[in-house]
Write a protein that binds this DNA or RNA. Structure first.
Lengths: 136, 136
DNA sequence: CGTTTATATGCATAATAGCGCATGTGAGCT
DNA sequence: AGCTCACATGCGCTATTATGCATATAAACG
């Protein structure tokens, strides 16, 4: 599809807006951390990450069994403007702020700068607690 | 739906991006002029205008049988950032430029600052030539 | 090699979006 | 009143999208 239209379309979804916001606020962050922060099922987060990736919004970096995502670095002016818009949304979006809080708590638990290391149990059931049926 | 998500979603469509671009570039402009500029069927343009209107992007003003649209005036910072992004897209979008050219030709034909007055035939078949079957 | 962990994806389904056609609405003109 | 013009909208269709479930992939670890 039209690459620029795809760019806007990728932001036309609440979950993806939350992801983009979180990624711009926290920098590089891995999928399991995003799952915990957004409190959404892993497959759901993964799907939306793929959409953002394909649209050109994100970069991924694989480290062992983890995948870290971050906002892409080679951005054009219109990308920047769009990211600024997302940032300016923050004031009005409680969900953004809650995501950021949960993410910040989660990121403090990183050991040696690596996600998930030494994590046995965040909530009961471990940090994959957001699998449907386990949480909620 | 979530008002801010709707805002982004409204821009996630080529036709609506073209409309927003044209409206930011030309100011107030009526539906028949937009139809000529975009070379799309009237019902199509009308539909997308309603979507943009509902999303909070546009204002309309009815004058006789015409309806003029313009970009809304009470905009928040994130609206402005988004509009800036659309503007920055212009460089890469031939379609935007073509729309603007056709619009500019069309707008020169206004009489007394009013659209459509004294217009008998722009292209053969009159200025409603974009009805399917008449054009293309 | 089998198992666990982290992530991605095929599939079915439900919801949504865009399009074309036809028609409705409402203003102005005769 | 009847007609035309400018614009909006209901309907049916098709295409796309989001979601949930299950499973695939692939790395790490015993």
């Amino acid at each position: 599809m039209d690459a620029q239209v795809e760019l806007f379309q990728a932001l036309g979804d609440a979950t993806r807006l939350r992801l983009v916001n979180l990624l711009t606020q926290t920098g590089e962050i891995c999928v399991c951390e995003l799952v915990d922060a957004l409190e959404l099922p892993q497959y759901n987060v993964s799907r939306h990450l793929q959409i953002l990736l394909k649209a050109g919004w994100l970069e991924d970096r694989k480290v062992g069994k983890w995948v870290y995502y971050r906002v892409a670095r080679d951005l054009k002016p219109y990308h920047r403007s769009l990211l600024r818009a997302v940032d300016q949304l923050r004031e009005e979006r409680e969900d953004f702020r809650r995501d950021e809080q949960r993410a910040s708590r989660r990121l403090k638990l990183r050991r040696g700068g690596v996600c998930c290391v030494g994590l046995v149990s965040i909530s009961e059931g471990g940090h994959t607690a957001q699998r449907p049926g386990t949480a909620g």
